Computed example of a mutant assay.
Amino acid sequence: MATISSDSKNQVLHVDDDDVFLKLAHHRLSKAGYEVTSLNRPELALKHLLNNNCRVCILDIDMPRVNGLDLLSEIKAYDGGIQVIMMTGLVSQMTVLESLRGGAEACFFKPMPDFTPLLESLDATFVKVERWWRCLHDLKNRRAGELNVAGATQ
């Protein structure tokens, strides 16, 4: 399991209108050490991400009220650093391509008898989140150093 130094730890938001799959995934992901919030109402997802500093999200594609691909687009427009993994029962090449073009890290198909590929993808996603935080931290330190040098020469 990846170790995260930011406030996000191993938080995962899972959004799916299928309550049975939502509960199954919650159980499997929690057992693997993730802190999972499960929502069956996609219209609440963006608000949750904003209010909880959650950096990783799993989205179903085919949901009522808000399509997962549209939600992916909204999330990426708000913050491109939020990592999104797509899930769908709509098995097609177009579904995968639209997900990846929209900025998703991966796309998995339901039903999911083996959660190993999803867990491996989540681990890799949290490594990517850690790299984002490290890069931002390095940038902050570099700018602070530049300001200190500029202030000392004046």
Results as ranks from 00 to 15, higher is better:
1 M>C: 03
2 A>T: 15
3 T>V: 08
3 T>D: 14
10 N>G: 07
10 N>E: 12
11 Q>F: 14
11 Q>W: 04
13 L>S: 06
14 H>I: 06
15 V>R: 01
19 D>L: 01
19 D>C: 05
20 V>N: 10
22 L>K: 03
25 A>P: 13
26 H>N: 13
28 R>E: 15
39 L>F: 13
39 L>M: 05
40 N>S: 07
40 N>T: 05
40 N>K: 01
41 R>L: 08
43 E>P: 03
44 L>I: 01
46 L>V: 04
46 L>A: 10
48 H>C: 07
48 H>I: 00
48 H>E: 15
50 L>K: 15
53 N>G: 14
56 V>P: 01
56 V>N: 03
58 I>W: 06
58 I>G: 07
65 R>T: 03
66 V>K: 09
68 G>C: 06
68 G>S: 06
69 L>E: 06
70 D>L: 12
71 L>Q: 05
73 S>Q: 04
74 E>S: 11
76 K>Y: 11
86 M>V: 00
87 M>H: 12
88 T>A: 08
89 G>A: 13
90 L>T: 01
91 V>S: 04
91 V>Y: 14
92 S>V: 01
92 S>E: 07
93 Q>G: 06
93 Q>A: 11
94 M>W: 13
97 L>F: 12
98 E>L: 11
101 R>N: 15
102 G>C: 02
104 A>S: 15
105 E>G: 04
107 C>N: 05
108 F>M: 10
109 F>N: 03
109 F>H: 11
111 P>H: 06
113 P>N: 10
114 D>C: 06
115 F>H: 05
116 T>G: 03
119 L>G: 01
119 L>T: 07
120 E>Y: 04
121 S>H: 04
122 L>V: 02
122 L>H: 08
123 D>G: 06
123 D>S: 05
124 A>Y: 09
126 F>D: 01
128 K>M: 10
129 V>D: 11
129 V>Q: 04
130 E>P: 02
133 W>I: 07
134 R>K: 12
135 C>G: 10
135 C>T: 07
138 D>Y: 10
139 L>V: 02
140 K>G: 07
140 K>D: 13
142 R>K: 15
143 R>P: 07
144 A>G: 09
145 G>H: 15
145 G>S: 15
147 L>S: 09
148 N>Y: 04
149 V>C: 03
149 V>L: 13
153 T>C: 00
